[in-house]
Write a protein that binds this DNA or RNA. Structure first.
Lengths: 196, 196
DNA sequence: GTCTATATGTTGATAGAC
DNA sequence: GTCTATCAACATATAGAC
């Protein structure tokens, strides 16, 4: 199992650096010191490999940023967690490209990774909506707002910002996510790095 | 020239119906009653063909929705124009898929369609920001708001909503765009169909 | 487990006849 | 302009040896 994880971590680095187009099975195999067949021995198909790559990345980000969202005790915390997540993504363009392209390809129902993305979106929305609702019940978020809608919107906003940012790196993703939360009435606390 | 337009319109229909994966040059050629070579005779390469398809679509939408944004005389108008645009997009899933996938592929600088998308985003943002600023000067939009940021955000929101909607058709894109404008302090007037 | 070699399928692009 | 035929390039997947 250690070998699988080693492969995934190397693939993650290569993709973050070189982008999605270079991320063929052959290319990733070379980078990890295996032949194409050798790599597929571990993952079966390309789509399975890529889903595992995304899953591994999610595990990492979950520890660093996702937990901060779910465990947010204050309005500033949850807003800040999203800003930090996006700021982090801006450091790994290749990976943002992987996510955007693979997600758009998987939007067709027959695609092997379709269920992965559908579930991922649903879970992300639920966790965020739950946290927002909790804050609302504690009086830290305006009672007139709809947590479900806000949760869906913030992920849509992030995906769309990533798309524009990929075309134009001058687009400041974190700035716009912070502005979104300000519109909602939350001032993100973005200072410092998450303890993770 | 009539032939080119005929080809583009047919391609538009086929893609709106059957999605992006089916949209190979061969497939589109069949639908329009030409051989693959016959079709490429008009457009040279696949990427050029697809850019022309998107351009043609934009011309149409521009007449029906884009003008409504640029010419919006009231806050309700501009918000409503976006809601109607998104509502319209929800009728043509295949085309939304084409846009999303092609845009994500073209995010690399070497891609033949990269300039098209970059310019398209820039122009859309500018027109929208200009209109919002005008409304703001007339006192119809809260003076504390930033037109540039809002313009960029609404397009990001739409792109992201499309991504989620492609994975889960239950996502109500128009509802969330309307909610965005409400957060901003504008109530969209969505009734009726645009004259055009 | 890992490799080499190869099958298979798909697509976009081109040459050349009509 | 349009077709047929073919090429060339990939990329994934698999068979079989070691």
């Amino acid at each position: 199992m250690a070998k699988r994880e080693e492969i995934l971590d190397t693939a993650l680095e290569v993709i973050a650096r070189d982008g999605y187009s270079r991320a063929t099975v052959r290319e990733l195999a070379n980078s990890v010191g295996l032949s194409q067949a050798g790599l597929l021995h571990y993952f079966g198909t390309k789509e399975q490999l890529f889903v595992e790559i995304l899953r591994r990345r999610d595990e990492r980000d979950q520890r660093a940023y996702g937990e901060a969202v779910g465990a947010a005790g204050t309005a500033a915390d949850i807003a800040g967690a999203f800003v930090r997540l996006v700021r982090h993504n801006a450091q790994v363009p290749g990976f943002v490209q992987l996510f955007t392209r693979f997600s758009s390809e998987a939007s067709e129902e027959q695609h092997p990774a379709h269920a992965f993305f559908r579930d991922r979106y649903a879970v992300s929305r639920t966790i965020t909506a739950d946290t927002l609702r909790k804050l609302q019940e504690e009086g830290r978020l305006s009672p007139g707002l709809d947590p479900e809608r806000l949760a869906l919107m913030v992920f849509a906003l992030i995906d769309g910002l990533q798309m524009q940012w990929l075309h134009d790196p001058d687009v400041d993703m974190a700035d716009h996510v912070a502005y979104f939360w300000e519109l909602v009435g939350l001032t993100p606390r973005t200072g410092g790095t998450p303890a993770g």
